[in-house]
Amino acid sequence: MERYEIRLSGSGGQGLLLGGIILAEGAISDGKNSVQTQSYGPEARGGASKSEVIISSEEIDFPKVRNCDILLSLTQKAYEKYGSGLKEDGILIVDSSVSAIKSGNIKIYSVPILDTAIKELGKPMVTNIVALGVLVEITKVISNEALEKAVLDRVPKGTEDLNRKALTKGYELARNLI
C-alpha cells in the first residue's frame, strides 16, 4: 500500500492551507485518495499553523497525520511546534532560515523558499507554490502534471504565469539539492 502522511507548517498567511488543498487535489487527479485537515489558532495572520494531507491508494479512515513521512516547516516557530512526529526515516524540508536538528535517519533539505519568493520572484504570495514545487520535486508524492493542474485550478485568474514561474523555481531549487 502506498501511503504518505504530509504536514505543511508555517505561519498564518503563508498560504499553506491552500498548499495542502492543492496537494490533495493533485493526488485525486493522479487517481488516488486524499484527505486534507488543518489546525489553526485564532490568528488569521502569524502564529503557527499546519495543514495536513494524507495520500493513499486505499481508503483513508483516520484523517489526521500521526507519523509524518514528509514535513515542511517554513518558520522556526512552526518547526518547533510541529517538528516532532516525523518518522525516523522521514523527509524534512525547511526554509533556510530555520535551524533544524538532525536526528535518526531523517533527511533534511534546507531550501531558500522564502527568499526565492520574496526576493527573486518579488511576490511573497507565491511562497506556498514555490514550497510545493520543492516538495513535489523531492518526494514525488504526486506527479508534476497533477501539481501544475491543481495549482492552476486554484490560483486567482491572471496569476497563472507567476505561479507557473514559482513552480519552476521550486523544481529548480530542489534539483540543485538532489
Partner: peptide
C-alpha cells in the same frame, strides 16, 4: 470540527 473542516475525495 474535524468533519466540518476536513477535505476529502
Amino acid at each position: 470540527e474535524v468533519i466540518g473542516h476536513m477535505r476529502e475525495k
